[in-house]
């Protein structure tokens, strides 16, 4: 069964004013338990708007969001508990840090849940470990850290709540290639160890190809297509039309095939290497 189900979701900004703007319309989306789903789409296509509906930060003008089969807005008072189940990490989460120490900031969520001191401590340490935050950082001021470290602290603040679904809005925006790689390996490790559901928004097709099991493409506020990485990136022309792209390495292989080679299309550099290696091995053996 789907852990999260979105039905006919429509969101209109500044309703009934001259600035009225339909950000998303008639979105239908199912997320299965334990999946890693990537959401891609051009700037302003409505990705951030969509994910803020997932944990009830926005209430839709039309449509329903179901978590484990029940409407998240069924009981208004319960919405805070829903937010603990569906952890949402905004773009540039480092701007939400406010506490004196890293420890206290990570503990903000668990504290809001009303957990005991011991449990809070356990959660902070676990979250810090997942996010690879060294122990000695916990007593430092979050404002003394580098941008990438701040980001990891802020994300640890979400993990400490221990949500069932982790939703990340452009988690790697503004990071260098190494920072991006680290962050994504952290996320995939976390997912593997806990088996939780992860939904992330990204503009980097390389990251999407490497990490996602399923890709949802949003264009102009509607879902344009969805499917596995292979299915989506095989429709390069359509993606280009929507202002999106395909991984660079895939472009290379398409060009090679156009020039008479006969490679299997690949989407990550690792797969490309494997394919090339296997070919050279065959040659060496001959």
């Amino acid at each position: 069964m789907s852990i999260l189900e979105i039905e006919n979701l429509t969101h209109i900004y500044s309703k009934k004013t001259p600035f009225e703007h339909i950000a998303i319309k008639d979105i239908n989306l199912n997320i299965d338990k334990g999946e890693i789903v990537a959401i891609i789409g051009h700037t302003g296509s409505g990705k951030s708007t969509l994910i803020q509906h997932m944990n009830g930060l926005f209430k839709a003008d039309r449509g329903t969001v179901y978590y484990n089969g029940s409407d998240i807005w069924e009981n208004k008072k319960n919405i805070r508990n829903i937010r603990f189940k569906i952890g949402l990490c905004f773009q540039y989460p480092e701007y939400q840090l406010f506490e004196e120490t890293v420890y206290k900031d990570i503990a903000f969520g668990p504290k809001n849940m009303g957990l005991s001191e011991d449990e809070i401590k356990k959660r902070v340490f676990t979250a810090a470990k997942y996010m690879e935050i060294p122990k000695e950082y916990l007593n430092m001021s979050p404002f003394d850290l580098s941008g990438g470290e701040k980001r990891r602290v802020a994300m640890a603040g979400i993990l400490a709540v221990d949500p069932d679904i982790l939703v990340l809005d452009e988690p790697t925006a503004g990071l260098d290639p190494k920072g991006r790689a680290t962050l994504f390996s952290i996320i995939t490790n976390y997912q593997k160890q806990t088996g939780k559901t992860v939904i992330f928004v990204s503009h980097s097709m390389e990251d999407v190809a490497k990490v996602a099991q399923r890709v949802v493409v949003i264009a102009n506020g509607s879902i344009a297509m969805q499917g596995s990485v292979e299915e989506i990136f095989s429709k390069a022309d359509e993606l280009l039309e929507m202002g999106l792209s395909i991984p660079e390495i895939t472009k290379v292989f398409i060009k090679l095939n156009e020039n008479g080679h006969n490679f299997k299309l690949v989407y990550t550099v690792d797969d490309a290497l494997n394919q090339l290696r296997s070919i050279t091995e065959v040659r060496d053996n001959e």
Partner: peptide, 13 residues
């Protein structure tokens, strides 16, 4: 709005 939402996502009331 952004900060309020970010803190709400961590259960701020």
């Amino acid at each position: 709005n952004k900060i309020v939402n970010a803190q709400k996502a961590r259960g701020a009331d």
